[in-house]
């Protein structure tokens, strides 16, 4: 029923992109088990559509687009319910490894409005250009640039205000 070649292509896809997709999902839904489900579902859909994927260079943005669609399909309710809980500590069970500043930065990142956070994640995690981000998020390049500017400006101000010793070390 399944061709060997499709299996191999799919395995490569999962191995290459599951970690990045997971990170992206966990930042947006703030929930590791839900993020894992989302990545699983994304690959399920990717499997079905894999034959239509012509341009290997577009694989990543294609996967992200599928994941976003799944996220918004199930996220609405979860978002409302989660907002009462202090989620900052739940992002990552390894957060203690991100000692001091990394943890503070994660909280700061997490506190950005989704409109700002998402393009920033796509840029840092995925290395996407403003044009690609605009495509993926159904917005204009100009709007993406404005959001990135504000998101990064907020993060910069946060860092400047932080008197953490680790930051001082990193600056020298």
């Amino acid at each position: 029923m399944f061709s060997r070649r499709k299996d191999r292509q799919f395995t490569l896809l999962v191995e290459a992109w599951s970690a990045d997709l997971f990170r992206y999902a966990v930042w947006l839904c703030r929930d590791r088990s839900l993020a894992e489900e989302l990545v699983q579902e994304t690959f399920l859909r990717a499997w079905k559509g894999i034959d239509s994927l012509k341009d290997p260079a577009a694989t990543r943005s294609w996967l992200i687009t599928i994941l976003r669609r799944e996220l918004f399909r199930v996220h609405g309710k979860a978002k409302l319910a989660i907002s009462d809980v202090d989620t900052a500590d739940l992002i990552d069970p390894d957060f203690h490894q991100g000692v001091g500043l990394t943890m503070e930065l994660r909280k700061a990142l997490d506190s950005l409005p989704d409109d700002y956070k998402e393009p920033l994640l796509l840029q840092i995690l995925g290395g996407f250009s403003c044009e690609e981000i605009a495509d993926m998020t159904d917005s204009s390049k100009g709007a993406v640039m404005t959001r990135l500017f504000r998101a990064r400006d907020k993060m910069r101000k946060f860092l400047e205000a932080s008197s953490s010793e680790e930051f001082m070390e990193n600056q020298t």
Partner: peptide
């Protein structure tokens, strides 16, 4: 700053 942000964004994967 970008290096710090990258480190923060890269949360652990199961």
């Amino acid at each position: 700053t970008e290096t710090l942000l990258e480190r923060a964004v890269n949360v652990g994967v199961p």
